[in-house]
């Protein structure tokens, strides 16, 4: 991204100001001083844990080290252990699948909701927006608890309703009892919580599409699907890609929902995703070295996913 991207970025920063030109000599040290507190906070808040994590991932760091014994530098041992650890690969693949499916479904539903909001009248839209705001504002712990109740084996409304369908036997079906249905519940919960954000963002994008364009397309004989596919989608594409990126990242490091669901279900490793796996390695069994190594892997995966998108965004920027 080095040479070709920098030029337009810099050009943009200085060129679009048609007003009074900024005098170069006026730029004293003030901006730098102003940035200092933020920078310090950032370094302390983000830099320190990150550096600690990188250093620890190369160390044998257990509970003894936590209590003051000097850690031993072990090079890439922790990472080498991971390569040969079947459970780690299982968790990684499971997490990636979970995150891709959940993020994709979230974005699809989010887009549909946005299109719906754009199409309906004001009152209905307001009702939609308010209900989605509620879903979005619901604290994770509260939402998860409600979902645990909904899917409760004995008294859950889901089993009750399904069981009422003739020929379906869902009495006391244990949703949290096997990994497939467990992750289904987790996925539904996370989608429910993240659709509002996606649809608000896309809806904002939709309002930017001028009615003239849509009308012109309609006159030219474009059907509803064609208008959606050929006009709406390309126009909200930048928003869409950033929203999808965010969802992917969030869903990859999902932790609270899985922990709470596991508390209501199984302690078994078959129900772990990366977040709970790291917690289990580090905080629960005291192997902070290995836990840090896994965290670094997650960081790299996140960077890899983001990289694709950042490059895409830059390309679009240039194209404009």
């Amino acid at each position: 991204m080095s040479a070709p991207t920098r030029t337009p970025a810099r050009a943009r920063m200085s060129s679009p100001a048609p007003g009074p030109r900024i005098q170069p000599r006026r730029t004293t040290g003030v901006p730098y001083v102003l940035i200092v507190p933020a920078l310090i906070a950032l370094l302390l808040g983000l830099g320190y844990p990150l550096i600690w994590q990188i250093v620890t991932s190369f160390q044998k760091y257990g509970l003894s080290q936590q209590f003051g014994k000097p850690p031993e530098f072990v090079g890439f041992d922790n990472f080498a252990n991971l390569v040969w650890d079947g459970e780690f690969w299982a968790v990684l693949v499971r997490s990636l699948l979970f995150c891709v499916v959940t993020a994709a479904v979230t974005v699809v539903i989010g887009v549909l909701m946005a299109v719906l909001m754009n199409a309906v009248g004001r009152t209905v839209r307001l009702i939609l927006q308010i209900s989605m705001l509620f879903a979005w504002a619901m604290p994770v712990a509260a939402a998860t608890t409600v979902f645990i109740w909904l899917f409760d084996r004995r008294r859950g409304v889901v089993n009750y309703l399904l069981d009422a369908i003739p020929g379906v036997d869902m009495n006391r079906y244990d949703w949290l009892g096997n990994p497939l249905t467990f992750f289904f519940v987790a996925s539904v919960l996370i989608i429910w919580m993240s659709v509002p954000f996606v649809s608000f963002a896309i809806y904002a994008g939709l309002t930017q599409i001028s009615e003239e364009v849509m009308e012109a397309a309609q006159i030219d004989g474009a059907g509803a699907w064609q208008r959606f596919r050929r006009i709406i989608l390309p126009m909200v594409r930048p928003v869409l890609s950033i929203v999808l990126l965010l969802q992917l990242i969030w869903d990859l490091r999902v932790f609270a929902q899985i922990t709470l669901l596991k508390d209501a279900g199984s302690k078994s490793g078959d129900f772990d995703l990366l977040g709970t796996y790291i917690y289990k390695l580090g905080t629960a069994t005291g192997d902070f070295g290995m836990a840090s190594a896994v965290s670094i892997v997650v960081l790299l995966v996140t960077l890899a996913i983001s990289w694709v998108y950042v490059r895409e965004l830059i390309k679009e920027d240039e194209a404009q």
Binding site: S266, S268, G269, D270, K280, T283, A284, T285, G286, D287
Partner: peptide
């Protein structure tokens, strides 16, 4: 032992 308990292996 605390690590063994924390790991959830026994539950599993």
């Amino acid at each position: 032992w605390a690590g063994v308990e924390g790991s959830g292996l026994l539950e599993e």
